[in-house]
Structures are given as C-alpha cells and as structure tokens.
Design a protein around this nucleic acid. Structure first.
Lengths: 246, 246
DNA sequence: ATACCGACTTGATCTGGGTCAAAGGCGCAC
DNA sequence: GTGCGCCTTTGACCCAGATCAAGTCGGTAT
C-alpha cells in the first residue's frame, strides 16, 4: 500500500507529485512533459471520451472521480474501471478509446498530448517501465473484479466495493486493519450498481441490510463509517488482507 | 486481427515465431534469450503455479490451454483469463503470482528465468514496449469480460465465449464474418462455467438451447459448427464485429 | 461383455436478485 | 415558506439461473 500517489505520471506543477517517474526524470525530460501538458475540467456526468473516439491525449486524474464504462445497444451498462486521483487514463499506442470515460463527480485532469507523449516514452525507458508496472496493477485489479462480478453475492459485492473505496481513503491508514474507517461515498447508488453488475434497488437494499447488521453506519446517504475493517473484509468473502500489507 | 502469433515472445527455436519482438532483436539479444530458455510440459489438470507462489519464470504457451483462476475459501472459483498458444504468462517485476495458473489441457510452455528476463527488458526498450502493448491488450480483454460477467444473460455469455474461442481458431479466417466456423471446444462444461460465472448445468442447458435454435451444431460434446458467425455475435449481444476487422 | 467412471444432459424445485410501483427525504429555486 | 427534481428507500411480485437429483453416453479396464 504505502504511497498510492507514486503511481502517477505528472509533473512538478501538478497537485499530484510524480515521484516514481519524474524523480528519475532529468531536466530535459521534465521540460518536454511541461511543454505538452494542459489541464481539463469536467462537470459531474460529463463524458470525457466516447468509446471509439480518437484519443488525443493521455493523462492522470488530479481531483474527482472518473469511470470507464461499457454500454450495450439496449442500454445495459457495466463500469469496468474506477479512476481515482493519481490514476492514469489512456493507452499509449492506441489510436481510439475502447470505452467511455465518464466524470462521475466534478473532475480535473492533467493531460499530455498523446503523440509527443508516446515519443517521449519510446525515448525514455524508465517511463515505459513505470507505465508497464501501472498497467499490470490495473490488470490485477480488473481480474480481481472479475471474481467479484462472476461469483460473489450482492452483499459480498457491496462489501467488496466499500472496502476498495475505503482503502483508497487516507483516513484508514491511521487506523490499521482492525480499526475504524470513515469516508464519503463518491458514487450514487446507480453508479455502484453499474460497477457491481446489480440494480440500484438491490444496492440500496443491501446497504440497508449491512447497516441493520452493524457492518456499516450511515449518516445521510453517503457518509459511511465502518466500525471494523476486518469485519467488512469478512463480509466481502475476501481471504486477503485487502491489500493493506505491502 | 491479422496475425495473432506476433504477440508472442519467444525465440527462433520455438514452435512459435516471435516476429514482433525478435525480428527487432539483434544476435546478442537472441543469444541472451536462448541462454535462459527452457521448456516445461504439464498434464491436463495440473497446476502450473499456485497463487502466492514465488514466480521463477515468465514465458509463453506453446501448445495447449492454460487458465488463470481465482478461488475463494469456500471453493467458488472464477477463471480470470484464458491462455491460448502464443499468450504470455507472468509479470516481469512481480515476485509472486496473483492467481493460480492451471493446465486446462495438456500444455507445453516456453519459459525464461525471470531475473535475467527482467534484466534483459530493462536493457532492451523494444521488448519492454512490446510487453506494454501485450499487457494493454490483456487489460482490454479483461474489461470486455467484465461486461460479459456483469451484464449478460447465460445465453449471451455462452455465445460470447464461443465467439472468442472460435475467433482464435484458424479455420475462421478463411471464411470471414458471415461464414461458417468449425472448431473443437478445448474446455469442459465445468471450465466454461468457471469462466462465465455460471454453473455447469446452466452451461449445458444453454448449449442445448443454442443447438435447438440452430445457432450452433454439435457433433459429440465438443465439436462445434457455427453456421453463421454473425448470428453468433448477435446472440452474444455484441455490437462490434468481434474483432475480425483491424 | 460387463461394469465402472468421468463428462454430460435433463428434470423438478427453489431462491436471489430483477422488475415494477409507490413513497420518503433533501436541496434548491422562486 | 412552497414546489419541484433527484436520489434513495421499501414493498410486492416474478423469473433466470442455482440447486438437487436422476439419468445417458462413451471410453476403457477387467
């Protein structure tokens, strides 16, 4: 776990530090990044990129939450990725986007024009390697989620999602695995349903059930307190430590 | 689509050519690969790597089929990846495996010792870039599968699986999208169920239903004929061309 | 040939989660 | 304040797919 932020690729003026990559970047490389960098803001609900669109940029999330979603013709949608601050968006080497990228909350992104970014990668092995590591992490996360989607019950799915969101929240780090966890849900019930392969009614019912059973406490609709993180992991059917250990 | 095999990382003596990577490798690089290469054979059902095991090698599938699976304590299992010949196994930079790798059929792999392979990557940018491309493809496939697991009906799931397996079979290329497709299923009903997040009974029932409705023809349990690939894609609820176009 | 075993099919029944419908809350504009 | 919209909850009912339980089929060892 340790420092999530070091996954990001950014540059010195970003709110996000770019330790892992740019600590190793020399002045010339940083200057290159700076030259092709720009910020974009989106309102909640706006689509950042449509599936099939030509990708003009890559970048990382500065603040807010974005999600990758796939939609079938009849309207069924599945969220296939959740992008929190410091997460990277885009595919160096891909001409067009494979899924819709949607701003789930108000969103700020730090973007780099794709072509020059790709050029820089090809000339900068340590950036390419960093990207590979990040992509492998995303792949592991995606496959972890396949287990959730394919085999877990609705209650387990909710618990899994809460543990993932909570885990990324700073407040947990202070408390440790057995401790209390407090955070605000950044997703509507519908967005949770789209991520979990459920309906929003089922999400709502299971949230109520978890509350009734004392696994979580709710204040308003979004403010969540988890008295015992371990208990939540048990509910998620998760045999691991939830990624809290190194 | 075009040439699947060019995804592989191998070396000249492998049954699999290694066009994309090694066409660009010089003699010294090929010699390095050769020095750390070895073959391993597994029988159907054998576990190649246990989740959590220390990874001693990376490599690619030469023949047969392997699958990546995750298992919960209570025995529920979800297949999270299907590895066909030419697919790459392993995570440069990872000390331990994230999932079980199981030989679904008799299996031959071409392996490289991990440490020297990683060293070679760090010194050989074009190999690292090739690995990044391959990993991005895997990520797309995993996310595509999340839609299948989260939102498709049993019938659509089966049709999706058949179209993926058939698509990798050489016989299709000759016939094109509207044509006939013939192949042998390399998976038991149970393995199909584990991949699709279903039970084996449901898989069997839906296979019968697709047969009854003329979407597929079955000869024995495993030999499948698809009269119209387009029809199969329609059944899969798939709006794309199934990856047949470039 | 017999009988055994693993892979598969089919039937009967059950149930978790979907669907449809009707109310709460709560924030915001007027 | 009052009213309007959106998010959320809750209830009643239904159905796709799970579960439980017999069989069938094909290969192979005795």
């Amino acid at each position: 776990m340790n420092e999530i932020l070091n996954l990001s690729i950014g540059c010195e003026n970003c709110p996000i530090q770019h330790r892992a990559v740019c600590a190793r970047c020399d002045a010339g490389e940083l200057e290159q990044l700076e030259a092709i960098k720009y910020y974009r803001s989106f309102e909640a609900g706006q689509t950042v990129i449509w599936s099939g669109d030509r990708m003009e940029f890559v970048g990382s999330v500065v603040s807010g939450i974005a999600s990758l979603t796939q939609t079938m013709e009849d309207g069924r949608t599945q969220m296939v990725g959740l992008l929190l601050p410091s997460d990277f968006v885009g595919r160096p080497g891909r001409e067009s986007a494979s899924y819709d990228v949607v701003a789930t909350t108000d969103l700020v992104m730090c973007c780099f024009r794709r072509k020059p970014f790709e050029k820089m990668i090809s000339e900068t092995p340590h950036v390419a390697q960093r990207l590979l590591e990040m992509t492998l992490d995303e792949l592991d996360a995606a496959r972890e989620w396949m287990l959730v989607l394919g085999r877990k019950t609705a209650r387990e799915k909710i618990a899994s999602l809460l543990s993932i969101i909570g885990r990324r929240d700073a407040s947990l780090k202070l408390e440790g695995i057995s401790g209390k966890m407090v955070f605000d849900l950044p997703l509507t019930r519908e967005a949770m349903a789209d991520y979990l392969g459920l309906t929003l009614e089922t999400v709502s019912r299971q949230m109520s059930a978890l509350k009734r059973d004392g696994v979580i406490e709710l204040e308003g609709k979004r403010h969540v307190t988890v008295p015992s993180f371990q208990r939540l992991l048990d509910e998620a059917g998760d045999d691991s430590d939830g990624g809290l250990m190194a």
